[in-house]
């Protein structure tokens, strides 16, 4: 027995050598494998975030050579500005209205697409298109479609008689309509991903449970609201959490379609931060505006995770 073990041990050492010792040792291999991710997060997320915090507590501009600590006075001054309040209000409106629409539509689409029908693959592919198209190109397409003079949408609605001959809405040029347009385009863009997540959630509900509800005598809506949706809740929350953070920090659609106008009616905190910090060169003000979202989103994230844990299912 002893000799056998000795023999076995020796052969392992001989075969592997130093390299195998290195690769078989989790103490060395673990840190090395995880290092790229850690370095990436520290360099491209952690460092800029700390920089933003530092900037927001100073009076720094693009022309500054020194760092002047001013405490919270930058925050105080931006909060007092009416443009900031408008942007904050718009951010909340934009985020919650578009998320609500996305969740409802994605849920309906997922319920439809989970069924088997002819051409299902084609319909799924079609719905996924906005997600795979480059976002800036997609939004430029929308810019044309919502054009104040050549809008094909208006043309179509007028031709079909839905709009009167003198009715020609300026989608991006009227305050209320501009926000509605931005929300519509954002929903168009977010829907595919949300639907995919919902489909995955639907598919994760065991078939036995759906069958049990059927045999237990539950009708369609009872099954939907008492079985399907509660069981999908954790994954829906993931979709909503992701969507809120994504929506509240998005800038491309607004930059391409309205640049925050007309009269700041579509200005959100991120676009505001860009205009203050980069265009106007007030780095401190830009950083403070952008960071204003940070506690808000952190709170949303914590809340969502708490709800997700409570409704956790096995």
């Amino acid at each position: 027995m002893d000799s056998l073990q000795e023999h076995g041990g020796k052969s392992v050492i001989n075969r592997g050598g130093r390299l195998s010792f290195f690769f078989d040792n989790e103490k060395f291999l673990g840190p090395i494998m995880i290092a790229p991710a850690v370095i990436y997060v520290l360099a491209l997320v952690g460092y800029p975030l700390i920089l933003a915090f530092a900037y927001s507590l100073s009076d720094i501009t693009v022309g500054s050579v020194d760092y002047n600590f001013v405490g919270l006075s930058t925050f105080r001054s931006i909060i007092e500005e009416p443009e900031f309040r408008i942007a904050l209000k718009n951010t909340i409106l934009f985020t919650f209205v578009s998320m609500a629409i996305v969740v409802v539509l994605a849920k309906i689409l997922a319920l439809l697409l989970v069924k088997d029908f002819k051409g299902k693959f084609f319909v799924r592919a079609l719905i996924l298109m906005p997600y795979v198209a480059p976002i800036s190109l997609g939004v430029i397409g929308w810019l044309w479609m919502l054009d104040s003079i050549y809008s094909p949408i208006n043309w179509l609605l007028q031709r079909t008689g839905l709009f009167g001959p003198d009715f020609w809405p300026m989608w991006l040029g009227t305050p209320g309509l501009a926000m509605a347009s931005i929300i519509t385009v954002h929903v168009w863009r977010m829907l595919p991903l949300a639907m995919i997540i919902m489909l995955a959630g639907l598919a994760s509900i065991p078939k036995d449970i759906q069958d049990a509800a059927l045999v237990d005598g539950a009708g369609y809506f009872r099954r939907l609201f008492q079985v399907t949706i509660p069981m999908m809740l954790p994954i829906m929350l993931v979709a909503v959490l992701f969507g809120i953070v994504f929506t509240a920090t998005d800038i491309i659609i607004i930059l391409v379609l309205t640049r925050g106008g007309p009269y700041d009616s579509t200005q959100v905190l991120v676009s505001q931060a860009f205009y203050i910090g980069i265009d106007a060169g007030d780095l401190a003000g830009g950083a403070a505006t952008a960071l204003f979202l940070f506690p808000l989103l952190l709170a949303v994230a914590i809340l969502m995770l708490k709800i997700a844990r409570r409704s956790e299912v096995t």
Binding site: P206, D208, I209, A212, D216, Q226
Partner: peptide
């Protein structure tokens, strides 16, 4: 009424 192999209890 049916009893399933997995019991199919509503987990929530």
């Amino acid at each position: 009424a049916m009893v399933f192999q997995s019991y199919a209890l509503y987990p929530h």
